Simulated scan of single mutants.
Amino acid sequence: MHNFFGFINDDYAFLESDEINHAIKSLRLGIGEKIKVFDGVGKIFVGEIDLISKKEVRAVKIEIIENHGLVNGYLHIAISPTKSIDRWNFFLEKATEIGVHEITPIISSHSERKFISKKRSKKILKSACLQSEKSILPKINELTSLKNLIKNDYTYYKYIATCRSIDKLPLNDLIRYPDRAQSIILIGPEGDFSTSEVTSAIENGFKPVSLGDHRLRTETAGIYVSATHARNTQNT
Rank of each mutant, 00 (worst) to 15 (best):
L15G: 08
A221H: 04
H2K: 15
G205D: 10
E112V: 02
I175P: 00
N152Y: 15
A13W: 15
D86A: 11
H22V: 01
I184L: 10
S165E: 13
I49P: 11
I103A: 00
E33A: 08
S210L: 02
K122C: 09
Q182C: 04
H76I: 05
F38E: 14
I24C: 08
I103M: 07
T236M: 06
D167G: 03
N89T: 01
L186C: 05
D179W: 07
T155I: 13
F4G: 00
I24Y: 09
V41C: 09
N148F: 03
L130S: 10
E219Q: 02
K126T: 00
E142F: 01
G30E: 07
F5C: 09
N67H: 03
R28Y: 13
R180T: 01
A128L: 09
S117R: 06
F90K: 03
I62K: 01
P170S: 06
I24M: 08
S135I: 03
K158G: 11
K139P: 03
I35N: 03
V225F: 05
P138H: 02
F115D: 15
E16F: 13
T96M: 05
H76W: 15
L29H: 06
V46C: 12
L171W: 07
I24G: 08
I24P: 02
L171E: 07
I79Y: 00
D153T: 13
L171C: 03
S17G: 12
T218D: 08
T199A: 15
I124K: 11
S210D: 07
F38D: 14
E112W: 00
D173I: 03
R28I: 09
T220P: 02
I187T: 03
P208W: 14
L70T: 12
S226N: 04
V37R: 05
F45Y: 04
R120T: 12
